Simulated scan of single mutants.
Amino acid sequence: MSRVLGVILAGGRATRMGGGDKGMLPLGGQRIIDHVVDRLGPQVGGMALNANGDPARFAGLGLPVLADSLPDWPGPLAGVLAGMDWAAAKGADAVVSAAADTPFLPRDLVAGLQAAAGPSGLALAASRDAEGKLWRHPTFGLWPVALRDDLRAALEGGLRKVVIWTDTHGAGTAEFGAEGFDPFFNVNTPEDLEAAEALAVRA
């Protein structure tokens, strides 16, 4: 099986939470990002964190901190690219991304993405809402490092929307079932954090 590394995307500005690092907020006796690390870590051969600004604030995690290689907050694809470059330097074949504010991500995320990978090796995670509509989650994907130069060129050309690039490369869609709630529930607002506290008891 190919060697897969993980990258936790924490490069956003968290404007709906008043700024700062959402992943560092307390949840269920830990921080949100600790839940992400606990769930993703066993699935990959190593992890890094994509974040901008002073990396010292994440020192307690013991993870490499990768800044975006492109300026002006170009979005999650820049974090994916940073992860792909890091994974390539480590000799890995692919990287799996996960958002730092999503504490209940599937414990079989990597296996599900690998099983659904398209011809290029790309895959995005997806789940269904209460009405049964399937939603893709672009910050949760399997990204072959062989495509990193193509992604870099696309970003330098102004591309920002994840699914435009992944659709161009025929990405597969890995559907994950709910466990009484959406496993990709993410904390964007103070109200979401309250809801996550209730979910943490069940997760």
Rank of each mutant, 00 (worst) to 15 (best):
G180Y: 14
M84A: 15
T139D: 10
L113D: 01
A98S: 15
A130M: 03
H169S: 10
A174T: 09
L159I: 10
K133T: 14
R148Y: 08
T102G: 00
K161E: 13
L109M: 07
T166C: 02
V163T: 09
D85S: 13
G141V: 01
L124K: 03
G158N: 05
A198P: 04
P106I: 07
P106N: 10
H169T: 06
M84F: 09
A87C: 14
E194K: 15
P190Y: 07
V145P: 01
F185K: 03
D93T: 02
A111L: 09
E156M: 07
W165D: 03
G83T: 10
F185M: 09
H137Q: 12
L134Q: 10
P138W: 03
P106L: 12
A94G: 09
A88H: 13
E131Y: 04
A98E: 02
I164V: 09
T189W: 10
G158Y: 02
E197A: 15
G112N: 10
R136A: 04
L199D: 08
W143C: 05
S120T: 15
D85V: 15
A196L: 06
F184Q: 01
G172N: 10
P190H: 08
V187W: 06
A115L: 04
D167M: 10
D150Y: 01
A92N: 04
L134K: 05
A171W: 04
F185I: 06
L159P: 00
A98N: 04
E156S: 06
A125F: 12
F140G: 00
E156H: 00
V162A: 12
A111D: 15
V80W: 13
L122I: 03
G83R: 06
A195T: 15
A117M: 03
R148G: 07
D192I: 08
K133S: 12
G83H: 06
G83Q: 11
D85I: 12
P138H: 03
W143A: 07
